[in-house]
């Protein structure tokens, strides 16, 4: 996703304006002049100022005929696009379901899926996924006492 600087600047300017409007709605700190709104206002103004500068810079260096928006090369390769979306989706699944399903099954599934998808053979993928999951579970949950979600295996672990 490649955006022309003018378009990026415009988007960031919109963000700055939204932030400014939001800041104006924040309540004052009782009995004090500077409250929750002071700093967001400064940030919004700074973001706005540099957005305008970016638009201006983009305008000066514009090349005739260059599109405002273009997809990067890798997006056109369906395999790469698939890999990209799959990675995002798998982390998303982890966020949503790790409490219920648990670290071990999800880690096995995520690693296996990504290995196979990137061309590792099934057997090797399964073996490495199992080894890596065991190592992480041992190092983080047992040694470092990170409460990795137990999920389905709650009664066994």
């Amino acid at each position: 996703m490649r955006l022309d600087d003018r378009l990026t600047g415009a988007l960031l300017l919109a963000l700055a304006i939204a932030l400014l409007v939001y800041a104006m709605g924040l309540p004052p700190m009782p009995g004090q002049r500077y409250g929750a709104a002071a700093f967001p206002t400064v940030v919004a103004l700074g973001l706005g100022l540099f957005s305008v500068l970016l638009i201006w810079q983009g305008w000066r260096t514009r090349r005739p005929g260059a599109p405002l928006f273009a997809w990067a090369g890798w997006v056109k390769d369906s395999r790469n696009l698939g890999n990209f979306l799959l990675s995002l989706a798998l982390v998303g699944v982890y966020v949503a379901a790790s409490d219920k399903i648990g670290f071990i099954p999800l880690s096995l599934a995520i690693l296996f899926a990504l290995f196979v998808r990137q061309g590792v053979t099934w057997g090797r993928a399964a073996a490495i996924a199992a080894l890596a999951t065991a190592a992480i579970q041992y190092a983080f949950a047992s040694l470092l006492r990170v409460p990795l979600p137990r999920g389905l295996l709650d009664s066994i672990l």
């Binding site: 990675s87 982890y94 790790s98 290995f115 061309g119 590792v120 490495i128 992480i136």
Partner: peptide, 16 residues
Amino acid sequence: EVLMPIVLMFCIVGAF
């Protein structure tokens, strides 16, 4: 292709 998924998993656990 082997390293990156493992890195991803370490990141998930680390962020958690």
